[in-house]
Amino acid sequence: MAFQLPRRGLAQILALIVILLIDRMVSSQFFDLRLQDGRLFGSLIDVFNRGAPVALLALGMVLVIATRGIDLSVGAVMAISGAIAASLADSHAWPVAVAVALGAGLLCGLWNGFLVAVLGIQPIVATLILMVAGRGVAQLITEGRIVTFTSPDLAWFGTGSALGIPAPVLIVAGTLLVTGLVVRGSALGLLIEAAGGNARASELSGVGIRLMIVAVYVWCSLCAALAGVIAAADIMGADANNAGLWLELDAILAVVIGGTSLFGGRFSLILAVCGALIIQAMNTGILLSGYPPEFNLVVKAAVVLVVLLLQSPRLSGLVANFRKARA
């Protein structure tokens, strides 16, 4: 073979580094770090901290997409869980508030999984139902208001820290670890990749696909519920109209940037998180740049295009051919 295919993940990690370097060019203090109230403080920390909700969504979404599904309802699930957590925060202990919020996420996941795996509805349609209805449910919980709370315990999930590291970053790291252990420590990862790669062949090999699909939708909704708690804790209030709005698209984008095909099969948890960080590094860079906000989406689209081109196998093939032709 005349050329070496880029090693899996190299493109994404390179892209993240390049975007961070561009951020540094845009804003000279980008890599500055200091401690503020016992918490690390700086633009780089913002990238990780603000990227946390999308990273969590991507951790669930990547499994769903690996089974050749998609979950459009994660933004709405965020709104529901945030609304529940905020409503309960001042009247109940934080473990109750968080547990009920996550429980709601579990139910949402079961619903999606039921529609997809048992009733056989196409995932994009099945999850669209909750995407639309879920936000309505959240609005019913908050009665259309922004429900604020004062409980510092719940607020920790958004603004707290341990050893100087912001809580959302720790939660993402923990979720990544748990997901990794569950998926790669068991046979789930292989079976998901098999089912996503070729569902018929996997079923004929004795893989129980239904239960697995329900499981990934449940996990996806749980991650979304956790992201919802973080988002509510961050602003100490639940904004049912806006919490998680359009984040399902960012999550899908993060997964795709992370190299997982929308046609299912091979997936990578770490690269999905990396994809979320690429998106956030870009967002933070745009905010720091001082460009008028009208440019935000254009810049974002251009960067995403470049990242996706970088990992396109066809493009690397073309480049290799070009090199061969010159050599």
């Binding site: 804003s27 905010l287 906000p293």
Partner: peptide, 21 residues
């Protein structure tokens, strides 16, 4: 000057970046 989309979450995120910049 940046857009915060009329929401608390975005208002906070944008202000964070303003402070750093």
């Amino acid at each position: 000057s940046q857009t915060g989309d009329f929401t608390r979450a975005k208002g906070k995120e944008v202000m964070e970046s303003f402070i750093k910049a």
